[in-house]
Design a protein around this nucleic acid. Structure first.
Lengths: 131, 131
DNA sequence: TCATCTGTTATATTTATACTATAACAGATG
DNA sequence: CATCTGTTATAGTATAAATATAACAGATGA
């Protein structure tokens, strides 16, 4: 899978990597059991330091998205393992400021939900091919 | 309106202020035409530097949420007519990583939309009292 | 066995951002 | 005229991001 890092972004590189890999899993481009490049390889490919990649992998491991295997490297975990833990509260804290802003800007509930549904479906439909 | 700053949070103080004020507008606790405290007053109340408050106000002004008036200070702006196209793209960029994560964790579309609707309604219902 | 790859850890440095501190200026207020 | 306002400038400190090297133990394949 191709990872594109924006060095001008105010989003830290290790966060960009983490997000893109999670999106890759959601879209089925990274299937369960598949291996990610080694921290050194990926760092070299992108042109960044291996510690930056390692930080992204550590977050993914912490979130249950990957498992570190001494032989196979970073392996995409099972969906069941990813589902562990409740994410509702974290989700609300992340969404509230975003929704408040578009609410003030006059976006209607139906428009917002339509936008959400569109993003969600973009994952589930891509996933059909990957799984 | 009461502003509660979490000094332990990894979210910068000026972002917390901005978000809470936008939420205050969304919930109708800050009505159109109402004035916010002066940067010096608010900074003293919270116990932070006036520049931190000023940064939050600058972002709110930039986003069209308030208007700086030499006499009345920071005044809550009239509900903005949404610049639809511009807002949508930013919205998608912010939502995609969040939705990808809960998608991987197995949250169904209906659950997600229900959660979104709940947050949205919490604004529109609070707004009934304020407006 | 041995060279090579792996993740992991440690330490140090540079850079950027967040926050604070102090000061000053121009416009508005009473 | 003293006092408040937002705004700007400058400088300092603290923390986080990213880099640069280095080393270690486990695993791999020749």
């Amino acid at each position: 899978m191709l990872l594109a890092v924006d060095f001008q972004s105010d989003v830290p590189i290790y966060i960009q990597l983490k997000q893109q890999i999670i999106e890759g899993i959601a879209r089925g481009r990274l299937a369960e059991g598949e291996s990610l490049p080694s921290v050194r390889q990926l760092a070299q490919d992108i042109g960044i330091n291996l510690h930056t990649v390692n930080k992204a992998y550590s977050l993914l491991k912490e979130g249950g998205f990957i498992i570190m295997d001494r032989r196979k490297g970073a392996v995409i975990n099972t969906r069941q393992a990813m589902a562990a833990g409740d994410c509702r509260e974290k989700l609300r804290d992340e969404l509230a400021p975003i929704i408040a802003e578009v609410f003030c800007k006059g976006m209607k509930e139906e428009e917002l939900i339509q936008e959400i549904a569109r993003i969600y479906k973009s994952f589930s439909e891509d996933g059909k091919h990957g799984l």
